[in-house]
Amino acid sequence: MGEYFILAISCILVNNILLAQFLGNCPFLGTSKRMETAVGMSMAVIFVLVMAGLITWIIYHFVLTKFDLEYLRTIAFILVIASLVQFVEMFLKKSIPALYAGLGIFLPLITTNCAVMGVCIINVDKDYSFMTALVSSFSYAVGFGLALILFAGVRERILLSRVPKPLEDTSIALVTAGVLSLTFFAFKGMV
């Protein structure tokens, strides 16, 4: 149990996927202008990342390795993720419309979110077992949500304050992300 806990802490805080590993930065800057979109995106990522992490793990270990097709990993994973996203979207629309209304517009964006693809590759690269892959996918996704929501909170405040003209918009957002990343950097010695 202890090792899973350490893994979870290290994935959420120390190796935060957005601020330390730089995966998924396009949605990080794109959806953080308003709190609602940030929360929606985080929930959608948590939902899809856990499922994608598990399914790609199963496919890699039971299909690709068995037939010596490891080099097809990239194409197999992206197809799995794309069809999974499509399937989840259809399923939610049909059976849980309330959740669909919340996540709806963010789901298609997830296909090209490198955080999802990245975690799937990390899981097989590091030879994680099935349970470890489950814990790491979930914790990476929680870390993504944590950083995104914190960042959205800061950015809403920036909108109200005066920013020098050349620094406006993306530029100040990146510098802010740097400061946020610095605070996460402080967790480095923990694990």
């Binding site: 601020l19 730089f22 003209k165 620094l167 510098v175 992300a177 740097g178 400061v179 990343s181």
Partner: peptide, 19 residues
């Protein structure tokens, strides 16, 4: 060269490009 520096460096370069 640490992760936070990446964000700050890119942000400042974007600012210079804007100027």
């Amino acid at each position: 060269v640490a992760p936070p520096g990446a964000f700050v460096a890119l942000g400042l370069m974007l600012c210079i490009m804007n100027i």
